[in-house]
Nucleic acid binder design. Sequence first.
DNA 1: CAACTGAAGAATGTATTCAATCGTTAGGTC
DNA 2: GACCTAACGATTGAATACATTCTTCAGTTG
Lengths: 232, 232
Amino acid sequence: MGYSVTSLGNILEKHDGPVSVPEHAYTVLKNALLEGRLSPGDTLIQEEIAASLGSSRVPIREALKRLEGEGLVVQRPRRGYVVASLNADEAEDVFDVRMLLEERAGFLATQKRTQADVDSVRKAMDEMVAIQSKGHYDSWAWGIANRAFHDRLFAPCNRPHLLRMLSQQRDLVTLYVRIGGSIAPDPETAAEDHLRIFDAYVRQDAAEVGRLSREHVHHTMTRLLAKLRDRA
Amino acid sequence: MGYSVTSLGNILEKHDGPVSVPEHAYTVLKNALLEGRLSPGDTLIQEEIAASLGSSRVPIREALKRLEGEGLVVQRPRRGYVVASLNADEAEDVFDVRMLLEERAGFLATQKRTQADVDSVRKAMDEMVAIQSKGHYDSWAWGIANRAFHDRLFAPCNRPHLLRMLSQQRDLVTLYVRIGGSIAPDPETAAEDHLRIFDAYVRQDAAEVGRLSREHVHHTMTRLLAKLRDRA
DNA sequence: CAACTGAAGAATGTATTCAATCGTTAGGTC
DNA sequence: GACCTAACGATTGAATACATTCTTCAGTTG
């Protein structure tokens, strides 16, 4: 790309570069949401965010609009943005869509997977086992590894749109799973599920991978909904 | 838009009234996209849009961000927004997700439908027949009625999130269906599909409504993809 | 004549400023 | 003392102004 360069320095900078301010704000906010530093119901004051990022409010508003599109925050006219909150019914609604997409992604990915994909998934699984077997259980590291496992499993399906939708559903769920008392998915049950999924993946039994993936999400949903409906 | 008015007049306007500028811009742009007045690849100049709506660029940018979130436009940094365009593979990706959601919505809606829902759907179907039997075929009116048919059919499922996702997929498809040479869905085949769907809906055969809905979308997809791949 | 350079014009990205609205609190009235 | 009212502070919504970058095109050079 022939950039019109005024000084030589910024050619290198462009590489991993000065992402736009809205993009940066989006990332920061989304991490805060997914890591639980912002909880459903919290109000987001534009000026605060802008100040903390050293920018004006304009690009922040764009980041918030993007998050709103993903359903993570809600705008109340003239009253600002708040972190979205779901009741049990709404959570079920989201989970239901997620199950559909996860089943489909699992099915398609299994059909198209290569041996390299199998190896990659196996590595992710090994990592999770390693984390679990450590003396002190690190739920954050486990969450990362868990995500990597599913990402790699589904990647071969080669359907950007499907994966984007799926990722969106998962983010929504992640935000709310925390409500039910910070339940990380039960690692032992999950490990068992993963093993069965992986087994079918190796055998390239696409329908089975789909079914098990769906069931896997269903487990999480059941536990969460029980908790949510308990406290209602 | 008389916005900065201190007089009393605008109190009344508020009732159904002066929605926020971004909202208005969003609606206007979306209609332009779905009605084909803007085609994939067209570039959207913020200043033009702002001028045509009598506002500044800031709220326009928010509307565009929202459209971007729905996949209808794409932002290229420092080069503005363009109407998104899909190749055949990407279109298939979108259709595939849509089929999943449509099947699910059909299934759930049929389980929960009441007699009032059946009547409402029947009315929509009658309207389509009336439009078709008219001397001159009005594809625009037909499209509206078609949408109403499906909306009413699915409404009873009572899953806002699912329906929102579904609506999004349909909008995406609507944008691209036009590429393949303005193919409206073939009304005769569609009418036949609708009759069969409605029949199963009346019998409350949920699985069948789901299956047929899926198939119905599949027909459209097949025709579109053939056209798209033809010209490639 | 093709290709590169550089400057002018246009459009985007962001900051700043102004306007309108919401929430709260102090003050008054019944 | 409770409730209503008015004004203030805080915050969002939108417009204007400024900075940066991209595109285009004329002029020049090899």
